[in-house]
């Protein structure tokens, strides 16, 4: 990837800030890997960063101004991803790439406007915290999913969006920040995870991208939770919640229509093409596309 100097500096600063946040040490190898540049270029880059007084002369730590700048880029990137997620039809797999392109063009003012327009979101769609204008971020929590073994239950707090081919697998499974899951099986190559009535098998490389925390006291993994999309005609379901993948206007619209915990839903109208399907919800017939029904969590009610 050919990058001009300015862009490269911004990418580097973002990387430094992310590592800082993740409490990960920066090394030239890491830079080489993440920024896809040669060792000579790294030397040059570091020299540039130090002359601009963005990075300390004797370590990899960011200076005050370097940190401010880095947080701005981070804020721009994560806000823009949030914007893409909420306001455009672009597919999840290219959010990161598009945000990478745009982050450099956004001035402080643009970022401020964007934040306002989006209602000052606190987390981007992947669960990464968005720095405020004053540069605050909540503390990081959790461990990678691969660290845990069979039988462990926990909640997803973050999903790494890079590289995109791994991320796509996770998002296609409908796993999001706040998904509650159980590890069914874990071996040296793969990890089988169970959530919402389905089992997904991920190689370690994928599981590596998912950060989880243990369940809180009043939080349990509930085997009986499934997705509305699996409901069949004649069956009855009680809605238990909505995935965080369903957000913005769509989420509040569904809430308004009565998709709230406790609501009973049945299939009322099938569609030959499988989508949308009409569900009887609070006395009305509401047609939902398959992707939407996948975001609604239910528990089947025995009759």
């Amino acid at each position: 990837m050919a990058m001009d100097e300015q862009t490269l500096i911004q990418h580097a600063l973002k990387l430094f800030a992310e590592c800082d946040y993740d409490q990960q040490d920066i090394s030239t190898e890491l830079m080489q890997d993440k920024l896809a540049i040669t060792p000579e270029q790294i030397l040059q880059l570091l020299q540039n960063l130090r002359t601009a007084e963005l990075v300390e002369q004797d370590s990899f730590a960011l200076t005050a101004s370097g940190r401010e700048y880095a947080l701005h880029v981070l804020q721009a990137h994560r806000l823009y991803e949030t914007y893409l997620a909420r306001k455009t039809g672009h597919s999840e797999s290219i959010w990161h790439q598009l945000a990478d392109e745009r982050e450099h063009e956004l001035s402080k003012d643009d970022v401020k406007k964007l934040a306002e327009e989006l209602g000052h979101p606190r987390f981007d769609p992947h669960g990464d915290p968005i720095p405020t204008a004053s540069g605050e971020m909540p503390a990081k929590q959790g461990n990678p999913l691969v660290n845990f073994s069979a039988g462990w239950e926990g909640r997803v707090v973050h999903i790494e969006d890079e590289p995109s081919h791994l991320y796509t697998r996770i998002s296609q499974a409908g796993i999001t920040t706040d998904s509650v899951l159980r590890i069914e099986q874990a071996n040296t190559k793969e990890i089988h995870i169970r959530l919402e009535g389905q089992t997904f098998i991920f190689p370690h490389a994928v599981a590596e991208q998912i950060t989880v925390v243990a369940l809180g006291n009043d939080d349990t993994f509930d085997e009986s939770i499934e997705r509305l999309s699996t409901l069949k005609p004649g069956e009855k379901a009680e809605i238990v919640g909505m995935s965080s993948l369903c957000r913005g206007l769509e989420r509040s619209r569904l809430l308004d229509l009565g998709v709230v915990p406790g609501t009973v839903a049945t299939v009322q109208l099938l569609n030959p093409s499988g989508s949308p399907i009409g569900y009887a919800i609070r006395g009305a017939c509401i047609a939902l596309r398959k992707e939407q029904a996948e975001h609604i969590r239910i528990r089947k009610v025995r009759q």
């Binding site: 308004d256 229509l257 009565g258 609070r282 006395g283 009305a284």
Partner: peptide
């Protein structure tokens, strides 16, 4: 009246 809950919302 047929969709009372949602309308009352």
């Amino acid at each position: 009246p047929m969709r009372l809950e949602r309308n009352l919302n």
